[in-house]
Design a protein around this nucleic acid. Structure first.
Length: 311
DNA sequence: GAAGTAATAT
DNA sequence: TATATTACTT
């Protein structure tokens, strides 16, 4: 089966779009105004970098410690253990811009809650890629997170997603082996995301007791690009909702026959786990905090690490 | 402390 | 609903 795996791997990789084919979606999702308001910097490469004021100052050598930086995106507590509560401030959208800036209470950033992450198909694909590279055996939240190299992604994010993904795989296995009547049970609404990325064959092996063979995750073939994903944040205010913002995972829902392919898959550099190259743009992902306790109705923050822009 | 799982919360 | 968080176990 190793051959199959290998083939599978090389095949899907070939299908990945070239860098030129990737659309600069981020730029269409973040308006200049918003970018300014959030200190978001967008570069030519479709990367969105949130430059929050962090105490972590990037040092020249950071290029070699990206891995470390990734691990300590949320360093140890500041000197204000009591600042758990954010200052009510004006509660205006504008003051989101001063996240961690100005303000005597500076960066409660670490203690703040991150907006919930939206697992876009692209991001999920990256997740799957990472797991595929690591192999069942090594695919644990922490390593997956590192391999994904997504700015702002936390271990918890990955753990939560991984938990659900495993359940999904379990269901897939059950359905493929059992052969029980209805075969259409899998496409539950909750599986749409997972269905958007192919599941590596070896993920579904049932009797995988000792077959925890894993693909050498090191030599990620031709992937030598050097940008890392960055987190973009979108604050969804009841009134500021811009159409583009809140349709993250919105409508893949018109799949003609069930599955959709995304023309632009994230083909980021899976940098070697050993010493991730150092894409790290911002050690601390951008995330907006939620100052006004979210209204049950809508003021929700969403952290999207990947634009879906499927249209 | 990290990870896995289930349950629960938002 | 999707994701986060918590509690508990390993």
């Amino acid at each position: 089966m190793r051959e199959e795996d290998s083939n599978w791997f090389s095949r899907w990789e070939e299908e990945l779009p070239s860098q030129e084919e990737l659309m600069p979606l981020s730029q269409t999702l973040i308006t200049p105004d918003l970018a300014i308001a959030f200190d978001i910097t967008t570069n030519n490469n479709n990367n969105i970098i949130i430059q929050q004021q962090q105490n972590l100052q990037l040092q020249p050598q950071q290029q070699q410690q990206s891995l470390h930086l990734l691990q300590q995106q949320i360093p140890t507590t500041p000197s204000n253990p009591t600042t758990q509560q954010q200052q009510p401030s004006s509660g205006d959208f504008a003051d989101s811009g001063e996240l961690g800036s100005a303000n005597g209470a500076d960066e409660p950033a670490r203690t703040l809650k991150r907006p919930r992450l939206v697992w876009t198909p692209q991001l999920h694909k990256r997740f799957v890629d990472a797991v595929a590279h690591l192999g069942i055996k090594n695919a644990v939240p922490k390593t997956i997170m590192q391999l994904m190299s997504v700015d702002g992604l936390t271990r918890e994010n990955v753990a939560s997603h991984l938990q659900k993904y495993r359940l999904y795989l379990k269901r897939m296995q059950g359905l493929s082996g059992g052969g029980s009547g209805g075969g259409g049970g899998v496409d539950a609404a909750t599986d749409h995301l997972f269905a958007s990325s192919p599941v590596p064959p070896h993920f579904l092996q049932q009797g995988r007791t000792n077959s925890d063979h894993f693909l050498p995750f090191v030599q990620v073939p031709a992937l030598q690009h050097h940008h890392q994903m960055a987190a973009a944040t979108a604050v969804q205010h009841p009134q500021l909702q811009q159409p583009q913002y809140h349709r993250q995972v919105g409508h893949f829902g018109s799949p003609p026959n069930g599955h959709f392919e995304h023309p632009f898959l994230s083909r980021q550099p899976q940098q070697q786990l050993h010493r991730m190259g150092a894409p790290v743009h911002s050690p601390v992902a951008g995330y907006v905090e939620d100052k006004e306790s979210e209204n049950a109705s809508g003021g929700r923050k969403v952290l999207t690490l990947f634009p879906t822009g499927d249209d």
